[in-house]
Design a protein around this nucleic acid. Structure first.
Lengths: 153, 153
DNA sequence: GGAAATTCATTCGTATGCAAATGATATCAA
DNA sequence: TTGATATCATTTGCATACGAATGAATTTCC
């Protein structure tokens, strides 16, 4: 092989490499699509609440009264986002807000009776949403997938 | 065991079931967190473009000129969303728009020279983003995970 | 005690993401 | 041919999502 051939080969390899990037095989792209699909399944089962709103109610049910900020940490939402979510839940009477007696910076959030009823009623639907989201996988695959997904998140 | 005991047992089981819903173990919740993490890694490597904007450029590089709608299908974005993405890319001179000669409904999108330079320059960074996103997994785990994730998306 | 650093919440700006409604054009079918 | 359908794009409205800036309150630490 001549030196020229070698050079040509290198150039070709680099170009092949360049064109070798396949968007639809990248983890970020597929992750985004999987998330989209889940949100769509969620909406089909629970039309009047978004996944973040549901997450806020479900977590409040677990931990009881907490500060808005702490709740955000628990459900992986930044302060600006959680405020919007809580504002909308409050407007619908599902949560109530109060000031922390000691630490005046904190805004306490809690379920109302209506909010508790709502989340209790929705949890069976949420189980079904999880089931349907994972439906393309076998039981064994689900176990593996969830373990690996948890490592990534 | 008396009939009363049986009834009590049933009630207890149902309540335990009720409290058994763990948000942080649900696939939707973890999927959302994994996606968040990926976006964060993306932003750390490519500050001046969002993942959807990058996806649009990368796909245009693959397929060449297409209609806005068709591009949306290819990158899993609805018509309203893709319009915003393309508008912003156009404002930055990375894509150009033209009317389809025959079908007057269609708006054709293509990379500009600058857009092509940009995406060519960014692809190596995108490879690194994928690598870093998958870093918590071993090579074998990555292969399994990607296969299962693709099934879900 | 008091300055510096931290924490909590809010606001603003920008960017997805999608449902629904609308208008223009194209295709299909009777 | 024309009337019904379907497709493409746009617009509006609402809901995340997050960086950055701001202000109030608290904690830390010298």
């Amino acid at each position: 092989m001549s030196g020229e051939d070698n050079l040509l080969k290198l150039v070709e390899v680099e170009e092949a490499d360049d064109h070798d990037y396949r968007l639809q095989e990248q983890v970020g792209f597929i992750l985004r699509k999987a998330h989209q699909r889940h949100v769509s399944i969620f909406a089909a089962h629970i039309a009047d609440l978004t996944p973040p709103q549901f997450a806020a109610l479900a977590k409040l049910r677990d931990v009881g009264e907490t500060s808005q900020n702490q709740l955000g940490t628990l459900i992986a939402m930044d302060a600006a986002t959680v405020k919007g979510v809580i504002d909308r839940l409050k407007a619908r009477g599902l949560v109530e807000l109060s000031k922390h007696e000691v630490d005046k910076r904190r805004l306490l959030v809690n379920l109302t009776a209506e909010g508790r009823d709502a989340i209790d009623r929705l949890i069976p639907l949420a189980r079904e949403i999880t089931r349907e989201t994972l439906a393309p996988l076998s039981a064994k695959e689900i176990a593996i997938f969830m373990k690996l997904l948890a490592k990534l998140a």
